[in-house]
Protein backbone atom coordinates (compact mmCIF):
# COMPACT_ATOMS: atom_id res chain seq x y z
CA UNK A 1 0.00 0.00 0.00
CA UNK A 2 2.86 2.32 0.83
CA UNK A 3 4.28 1.68 -2.65
CA UNK A 4 0.92 2.54 -4.20
CA UNK A 5 0.67 5.75 -2.20
CA UNK A 6 4.22 6.78 -3.01
CA UNK A 7 3.76 6.05 -6.70
CA UNK A 8 0.63 8.17 -6.85
CA UNK A 9 2.36 11.04 -5.10
CA UNK A 10 5.31 10.78 -7.44
CA UNK A 11 3.07 10.66 -10.49
CA UNK A 12 1.18 13.78 -9.40
CA UNK A 13 4.47 15.56 -8.70
CA UNK A 14 5.81 14.61 -12.12
CA UNK A 15 2.67 15.86 -13.91
CA UNK A 16 2.77 19.06 -11.87
CA UNK A 17 6.41 19.69 -12.69
CA UNK A 18 5.84 19.01 -16.36
CA UNK A 19 3.08 21.63 -16.41
CA UNK A 20 5.15 24.21 -14.56
CA UNK A 21 7.72 23.90 -17.32
CA UNK A 22 5.24 25.07 -19.98
CA UNK A 23 5.61 28.49 -21.53
CA UNK A 24 2.22 30.03 -20.70
CA UNK A 25 0.78 31.22 -17.43
CA UNK A 26 -2.30 29.07 -17.10
CA UNK A 27 -0.63 25.65 -17.41
CA UNK A 28 1.95 26.86 -14.91
CA UNK A 29 -0.77 27.75 -12.42
CA UNK A 30 -2.48 24.39 -12.96
CA UNK A 31 0.89 22.69 -12.58
CA UNK A 32 1.58 24.47 -9.32
CA UNK A 33 -1.82 23.42 -7.99
CA UNK A 34 -1.17 19.84 -8.99
CA UNK A 35 2.26 19.98 -7.42
CA UNK A 36 0.78 21.35 -4.21
CA UNK A 37 -1.60 18.35 -4.03
CA UNK A 38 1.40 16.09 -4.35
CA UNK A 39 3.32 18.00 -1.72
CA UNK A 40 0.37 17.96 0.67
CA UNK A 41 -0.07 14.23 0.23
CA UNK A 42 3.65 13.78 0.76
CA UNK A 43 3.73 15.87 3.92
CA UNK A 44 0.58 14.24 5.21
CA UNK A 45 2.17 10.81 4.95
CA UNK A 46 5.15 11.83 7.07
CA UNK A 47 3.35 10.62 10.19
CA UNK A 48 2.69 7.25 8.60
CA UNK A 49 -0.50 6.07 6.93
CA UNK A 50 -3.15 5.07 9.43
CA UNK A 51 -5.06 2.42 7.50
CA UNK A 52 -7.23 1.48 10.43
CA UNK A 53 -6.51 4.46 12.62
CA UNK A 54 -8.89 6.85 14.28
CA UNK A 55 -8.96 10.61 13.90
CA UNK A 56 -6.55 12.48 16.11
CA UNK A 57 -9.21 13.26 18.66
CA UNK A 58 -8.62 12.50 22.28
CA UNK A 59 -10.90 9.69 23.28
CA UNK A 60 -11.62 8.52 19.75
CA UNK A 61 -9.65 5.37 20.29
CA UNK A 62 -6.25 4.13 19.41
CA UNK A 63 -4.29 3.93 17.25
CA UNK A 64 -4.88 7.54 16.37
CA UNK A 65 -3.49 9.26 13.28
CA UNK A 66 -0.55 11.60 13.74
CA UNK A 67 -2.04 15.08 14.31
CA UNK A 68 1.09 17.10 13.64
CA UNK A 69 1.40 16.59 9.85
CA UNK A 70 -2.33 17.15 9.66
CA UNK A 71 -2.08 20.53 11.32
CA UNK A 72 0.76 21.47 9.02
CA UNK A 73 -1.02 20.31 5.90
CA UNK A 74 -4.25 22.04 6.91
CA UNK A 75 -2.63 25.43 6.90
CA UNK A 76 -0.64 24.46 3.82
CA UNK A 77 -3.88 23.83 1.94
CA UNK A 78 -5.26 27.23 2.82
CA UNK A 79 -2.02 29.06 2.11
CA UNK A 80 -1.70 27.08 -1.10
CA UNK A 81 -5.08 28.40 -2.16
CA UNK A 82 -4.03 31.96 -1.39
CA UNK A 83 -0.87 31.55 -3.43
CA UNK A 84 -2.69 29.95 -6.36
CA UNK A 85 -5.10 32.84 -6.32
CA UNK A 86 -2.29 35.34 -6.22
CA UNK A 87 -0.39 33.72 -9.06
CA UNK A 88 -3.40 33.36 -11.31
CA UNK A 89 -4.42 36.95 -10.78
CA UNK A 90 -0.85 38.05 -11.35
CA UNK A 91 -1.08 36.16 -14.63
CA UNK A 92 -4.25 38.05 -15.53
CA UNK A 93 -2.66 41.31 -14.60
CA UNK A 94 0.41 40.47 -16.66
CA UNK A 95 -1.77 39.71 -19.62
CA UNK A 96 -3.68 42.93 -19.14
CA UNK A 97 -0.55 45.06 -18.85
CA UNK A 98 1.85 43.26 -21.14
CA UNK A 99 -0.64 41.84 -23.58
CA UNK A 100 0.83 38.38 -23.36
CA UNK A 101 0.59 35.31 -21.18
CA UNK A 102 4.08 34.08 -21.97
CA UNK A 103 6.44 33.17 -19.17
CA UNK A 104 9.29 32.06 -21.43
CA UNK A 105 10.90 35.47 -21.53
CA UNK A 106 9.37 36.11 -24.93
CA UNK A 107 7.35 39.31 -24.74
CA UNK A 108 6.11 39.22 -28.31
CA UNK A 109 2.38 39.01 -28.52
CA UNK A 110 1.82 36.58 -31.32
CA UNK A 111 -1.20 36.86 -33.49
CA UNK A 112 -2.13 33.24 -32.98
CA UNK A 113 -3.20 33.98 -29.46
CA UNK A 114 -5.51 36.72 -30.66
CA UNK A 115 -7.18 34.36 -33.02
CA UNK A 116 -7.60 31.84 -30.28
CA UNK A 117 -9.52 34.15 -28.09
CA UNK A 118 -11.68 35.72 -30.72
Amino acid sequence: MEALYATTTGLLAACGVYLTLRGRTFPVVVGLTLLSYAVNLFLFSMGGLAMHGNPAVVGAGSPAADPLPQALVLTAIVIGFAMTAFVVILAMRARGDLGSDHVNGNRLDDSKEKEDTK
Binding site: E2, A3, Y5, A6, T7, T9, G10, L11, A13, A14, C15, V17, Y18, L21, A38, F42, S45, M46, G48, L49
Partner: peptide, 17 residues
Amino acid sequence: LASAFGVVVASLNFAIL
Protein backbone atom coordinates in the same frame (compact mmCIF):
# COMPACT_ATOMS: atom_id res chain seq x y z
CA LEU B 1 12.96 16.10 -16.04
CA ALA B 2 9.45 15.67 -14.67
CA SER B 3 9.82 11.91 -14.61
CA ALA B 4 13.09 12.18 -12.76
CA PHE B 5 11.45 14.47 -10.26
CA GLY B 6 8.49 12.12 -9.86
CA VAL B 7 10.77 9.13 -9.37
CA VAL B 8 12.73 10.99 -6.71
CA VAL B 9 9.57 12.10 -4.89
CA ALA B 10 8.08 8.61 -5.02
CA SER B 11 11.30 6.97 -3.85
CA LEU B 12 11.69 9.43 -1.06
CA ASN B 13 8.12 8.98 0.04
CA PHE B 14 8.42 5.22 -0.06
CA ALA B 15 11.67 5.27 1.82
CA ILE B 16 10.15 7.32 4.60
CA LEU B 17 6.90 5.39 4.76
